[in-house]
Amino acid sequence: MNVFRLTGDLSHLAAIIILLLKIWKSRSCAGISGKSQILFAIVFTTRYLDLLTSFISLYNTSMKLIYVGCAYATVYLIYVKFRATYDGNHDSFRVEFLIVPVGGLAVLINHSFAPLEILWTFSIYLESVAILPQLFMISKTGEAETITTHYLFCLGLYRALYLFNWVWRFYFEGFFDMIAIVAGLVQTVLYCDFFYLYVTKVLKGKKLSLPA
């Protein structure tokens, strides 16, 4: 554990809580891609199956349970409780175009051809692109609520902090995981355009809206 890893995890946690609270308090999931949230629920489920097979630490176990629990709670709020507010027409990204290639890649490029390991690899690859339906939705509607941009910023920042964590671990522990590093780089790059808009617009008090 180092400072980048810890702040990365906390940033991830903050993102998840911000989204849950936003939906809960406003009683609405307008502007939120349910498809991205389903993908994140799949990501956590396939990655954290190791809860059943290996214990790493109390921190590790509790964070995993919180992440996976919150992911399902978010999906429940969007598709069941506040379904009437879900903007399905604008959430039109075709997720099979992500899941199928990512599944194929996980079978082809992994650390070990074992079921749990392939599912872990699948989750790493899928996480790197899971935000695309949300970004697609924003580009389609041309705007995002400010609280939604805070969510996206925390979510993007988390993987960027993990990149520093991996540099740290390589330097001080000789540890590296090429699959996680490459996927983490891809994931972070996908947020760059959004980061730019967040800094130049949202942090200056303006709403995030894209030119028509």
């Binding site: 991830h12 290996s54 790493i56 992440y67 650390h111 872990w120 964590n165 590296f176």
Partner: peptide
């Protein structure tokens, strides 16, 4: 090390 799990990161 670049090898299969257990994975200690989230």
């Amino acid at each position: 090390a670049d090898e299969a799990g257990p994975h200690d990161e989230l």
